[in-house]
Structure formats: structure tokens, C-alpha cells
Design a protein around this nucleic acid. Structure first.
Lengths: 337, 337
DNA sequence: CTGTTAGCGCTTTCAT
DNA sequence: ATGAAAGCGCTAACAG
């Protein structure tokens, strides 16, 4: 262990000034009416002593801890949405804030504990992040700091940062159209009509709405719509095999990359080549998409930018909800024109 | 915004006792000599007021903030080692601690800032985590809290938590042997001899040592050793194609799952089936491994357990360095016997 | 322009 | 068995 920590009083003493003076100078208050000489002495003293302010003490006094809480269901511990945390972390660091990360597994009890733990530590703001965009449970606790929803929504806190899924959906169809494919397109992963009311999430519903509208706008129709609830590679594989038994589409529009991954496997086994025989477009820009051969063209989830925006919004005094554009990542699964 | 926060003084007032009494009762000191009646009154008051202690104030007084810092190069923001953070988060939560997550990208300047930011906030301990196990840069700052290295090492802080790569290497070979494959094994991803001295990390060197020793112990020899520096799918693909031009091995021992993924692709194109024609064993238990068809049998990195252990070690007063066993994840890429 | 003083909310001697 | 008072390190009124 080291010797005791250097305090502001130590700095003031060495500089031959009061702690007040030292405090004002070091915190850089604009209305300082202290001499340039005093400034120099204090800074020199602080530097030579290696002074660092005690944030806990400052927080006690000012109610500002320069820290924010990132409360999520699974974001930090799952790879799917790790971009959210990456962006948030980067923005927090730039703003010289520190981020407490709390995971709740979506369980109300842990959610409550997480909020309490964060509030007990005087965080300056809360971010509720969801792995998959949806209505998020927010514990019914008094929350007196700026709060924003990330990749999810809450009736209580209306400001949220979400991907612009509707436009993303449209872009996917437009990509196909621009590649000259206006017929023979099959949809992989649509949820059956019977489940239409309970789309896995609001945002996915918007993704689908964008697709639907763009299809109509371009006078296109799906040659097949294969429905499944779970968007895992195995389902993409099964669905594609089933599809190939009766049809030979020109393109597959997959609702996410893992489904597309399964489709690649089935296509490969059937000796069908991408993109010559069948083109693919998908969503999410999962890391998988870059591993595939040929690389998968996909409409990416802008997680990193979303995380960043959430922190900026929080620190900048909230504002209005944000829709973040989904980038088009072109790889090789669509024919070049 | 809400009305002012409830303080200990409020609780004491309502209970008709002093703050001293309230403090002792609520913190549950064992040597309390306060009446049962006093206990009841204080607890009732605290509950009815919804009292929550101010951790900043407590930290100021006790030098304990019930928070720890998780400082890493890329762990939080990359999917490779997210298990580390998951385990650490879980263990911290169980111990009622909160975790500050800081990312440095491995840059010394950011590393320094991160440590300062953490120390300024009176964290109770530091965990330095590395995405890939290696010697980690630790800034030359006075650090007066328990510190442990996770998935990496440092001369300054000798206590680290690492995967038991040597045993893992041995297990991989034993898996092959137990499947009846003692010849025709090709190694994918070994680093060339010219690079022997600079294995990507100490732990990978141990993985390879385990493999080598087990090969010798079982009287086995590689039929080919394909070297590459970057363990990405594309390299696994290229290496496998090259290999197949001259040889037809019975098994591929891949140094990681991404390499194996590339190998699957090359094998598939060549019409070679796994595991009938060629068996595969690999390392890491990347999520990819479960997506492949057949599933990839792999020696997993026990990241979650490591993260958990690091926190437990830190909170439990350090101790000795730990080697965590790598689990064998059997899927379908090895023939059943 | 600078210093004194009074807390922020809590824990902890030390009296009673 | 209980309470008064001091003080952790810092900032913000308020005097000088």
C-alpha cells in the first residue's frame, strides 16, 4: 500500500494559498479573479504532488459524480449488441465520464437492484439498454436523473435511441431492385400471419413494414414467404431446403444474418452458388456476415453510433428521440451491375 | 425531478434516535448493543421513508466504495472475450459491488487515464483484463488497491487468472486419440518456426506446448503443419485448400475456431464430409462453433469462469494465481467411437 | 482578489 | 445502551 493520498489541502499548503483558491483554480471556474501567479503556483504544486481530486468528496458536495450507469438486459454479456456498449463507452470517455455497467438478465428484481445500486452511487444519468429493441421494464422507483432508453422504449421515459428499421427495410428491397432483381425474391424469416400481432419487437415490425412498402412501391412480389419464429442458422438452413424443394428463386431476402448463414449452408450443399444463381440480402451486419464466402451484403444495425448517441443525449440534457440510420454494407452476395 | 433524497438523519429523526444509532443498526455492525426495540424502529423508519445510503458519503468516510474497475484493452467492446466481463459482472453483483468498465484499446495514454479515473472514484480494486492473453501494459501510477490480472500478466501484479492452455492443448490431442485417430493429423495455424520466439502470446505458446507434448506422449506425428499468423476464416480456407492439393489427412487440428470455420468452407467445396472423411478439433468455443454443420468439437476458453474468479480473488483478498481448466465441448466434428 | 466558514451524508471515537 | 461531536475531501457562500 502507498502513503496517504494527496488532498487539496496539501496542494494549497504547498502553494501557500487557501484550499478555496486551489479549488477554484483547479476546477477552472470561469469567474476566477485570482492572480496569474496564484494559478501558476497551484498548478505547480498539484503537479509536483501528483494531486488527484477525490471524486466521492466532490460528488457529495456537488451531486455530480461524472459517472453514468448503463443498465441492460444482456448487452454487455452477449455479443449481439456489444456495439451499443462500445459506442457508449467511447462517448463517456470523451466526456470524461465513467460508466457503471449493470446487467439484469431482464429480471425485474435485478433491474430494481441495478437502479438502486446506480442511484446510491450518485450517477449523473441512466441508460436503459435492450439487446433486442422492445418495451423495457423500468422499475417503479423514483429516478431523479436524466434517463434515456437505448434500443428499446419505455412509456415512462420517452426519449429513446433506435435504429431506423423502416428505412432499413426499404433499403434492402431497393438493393435488390438496383441489382436488377425485381422478381423471384423469397423472404426468409417472416413471422407467420397468425403471429403478426406479436412481432418479436416493434422495431422488427417496422423493418418488415419498410420491406412491404418498398415491395409495393417497386411493383414487386415475393415468390415465397417462409415463416419462422427463431432466427437461428439452423432455421435458415431448414427453411431454405424446404424452399428449394419446390422453387428456385433468384434472391433470398433474409430477416437477419444468422438466417442467411443457414441459407448459405443449404445453398452450398445443393450446389447453388451465390450470387450467380441466387443473390442474398440480409440484416444486422453480424460478424458472421464477413466470414461467409462470398461476403454477405447486409443492412447493418448501427449499434455503436446508437450507444454513442445515447450518452451524448444524456449528457447534453436529453432532447428528442433519435432514429439512427442503418448502413448498407455491400459485400459479395449481390451481383454487381 | 423528485424531492430531496432521504438521508440517515431523516431516518433517525423518524425513529426518535440518533444518527449514530441508526447508522449502527442499518449497517448491521455485530457489536451493536442497541435494544431490539431500537432496531425495529430504525428499520421501520428506513423502510417507510425508502431510505438508501449515499455511497459517496460512505466512501468518503470509509474509503470503501463497493465498486471495482474492470480495465481492459478490448474485452467489453469485442465479442471475443465478452465472457470475461459476463463472469466478472455476475460475481460483482453477487458481492453487491458495482463495476466500472473502462476500455483503453491498449493505448498507454488511455490506460493511464482509465486507472486515474478509477482511482479518483475510490474503487476497491482493479482488474486488468486482456482480450488475448499477454503481458499487459500497466501504467506506472501509484496503485493502492488490490489488483489482479485477467487473461494477461504483468510483472508488477503477479496474481493473474489464466486459462490452462497447456492442459487444453493436451486434451485436444487426446480427443483425437480417443476417437481412434492417431495418424494423418494435420495442424492448422501453427506459427512458422521463424516466428517461434514470438508466439502471439505466452498462453498460445503453452497451448502449442501441450499439443506437442501430447503428440509425443501418444507416439503421434503431424502429417502436415500449416503455418499462419492471422487466425481468421480466410486463412483457414486458404491453408486447407493448399493442404488438400497434396494430402488427404484424416483429421485437422485447428488452433482456433475461426480457422476451423474456414477449413469447413474449403472442405465443403471439395466435397469432403465432416467427420466421416475428415475429423476436426479446434479451440476457443467461439459461438461460430455451434453454427457449423456438423457442430465443431472444441476446447473452450473458460472466460466466464475466469472473470468470476478474478472478482472473487480481488474481493477475497487476492491469493495465488489461478489456472482455469478449459472445457471440452463435444459436438459432431469428431467421429463417435 | 483572497481566506474563513459551513456544510454535503455518513461513520466513529468517546462520553454519558 | 445511547448520543454528541468530529471529520473524511471538497465546494460555495460570504466576508474582508
Amino acid at each position: 500500500m502507498q502513503k496517504k493520498r494527496v488532498t487539496l489541502a496539501d496542494v494549497a499548503r504547498l502553494a501557500g494559498l487557501s484550499t478555496t483558491a486551489a479549488s477554484m483554480i483547479l476546477t477552472g471556474r470561469p469567474d476566477t479573479r485570482l492572480s496569474a501567479d496564484a494559478h501558476a503556483k497551484v498548478h505547480a504544486a498539484a503537479a509536483s504532488l501528483g494531486y488527484r481530486p477525490n471524486v466521492a468528496a466532490r460528488a457529495l458536495r456537488t451531486d455530480k459524480s461524472r459517472s453514468i450507469a448503463f443498465i441492460s438486459d444482456y448487452v454487455a454479456t452477449t455479443r449481439f449488441a456489444s456495439g451499443l456498449i462500445r459506442g457508449a463507452l467511447a462517448a463517456a470517455e470523451e466526456a470524461k465520464h465513467v460508466m457503471l455497467v449493470l446487467e439484469t438478465g431482464g429480471e425485474p428484481a435485478r433491474e430494481t437492484q441495478a437502479v438502486e445500486a446506480a442511484l446510491d452511487r450518485q450517477v449523473d444519468g441512466l441508460i436503459f439498454a435492450a439487446m433486442r429493441a422492445r418495451e423495457v421494464f423500468v422499475p417503479d422507483l423514483p429516478i431523479n436523473v436524466p434517463t434515456i432508453m437505448l434500443n428499446g422504449t419505455s412509456a415512462r421515459f420517452p426519449v429513446s435511441v433506435l435504429p431506423d428499421e423502416y428505412r432499413g427495410g426499404r433499403r434492402a428491397v431497393e438493393l435488390l431492385r438496383d441489382a436488377g432483381i425485381t422478381e423471384g425474391v423469397a423472404l426468409l424469416g417472416h413471422n407467420a400471419d397468425s403471429e403478426a400481432g406479436l412481432f418479436r419487437s416493434e422495431t422488427i415490425a417496422r423493418r418488415f413494414a419498410g420491406i412491404r412498402d418498398a415491395m409495393i412501391a417497386n411493383g414487386m412480389r415475393f415468390v415465397a414467404e417462409l415463416s419462422c419464429w427463431n432466427w437461428e442458422p439452423a432455421h435458415g438452413y431448414d427453411l431454405t431446403r424446404k424452399l428449394l424443394r419446390t422453387k428456385r428463386p433468384k434472391a433470398l431476402l433474409c430477416l437477419n444474418d444468422r438466417l442467411a448463414f443457414g441459407a448459405y449452408q443449404a445453398l452450398g450443399e445443393a450446389g447453388i452458388t451465390v450470387p450467380e444463381d441466387i443473390a442474398l440480402v440480409s440484416f444486422d451486419n453480424d460478424e458472421l456476415a464477413s466470414y461467409l464466402r462470398p461476403g454477405l451484403t447486409t443492412i447493418g444495425l448501427p449499434h455503436e453510433e446508437m450507444g454513442r448517441k445515447a450518452v451524448e443525449l444524456m449528457l447534453g440534457g436529453i432532447g428528442a428521440a433519435q432514429l439512427v440510420e442503418m448502413p448498407v454494407i455491400e459485400r459479395g452476395s449481390l451481383p454487381r451491375r
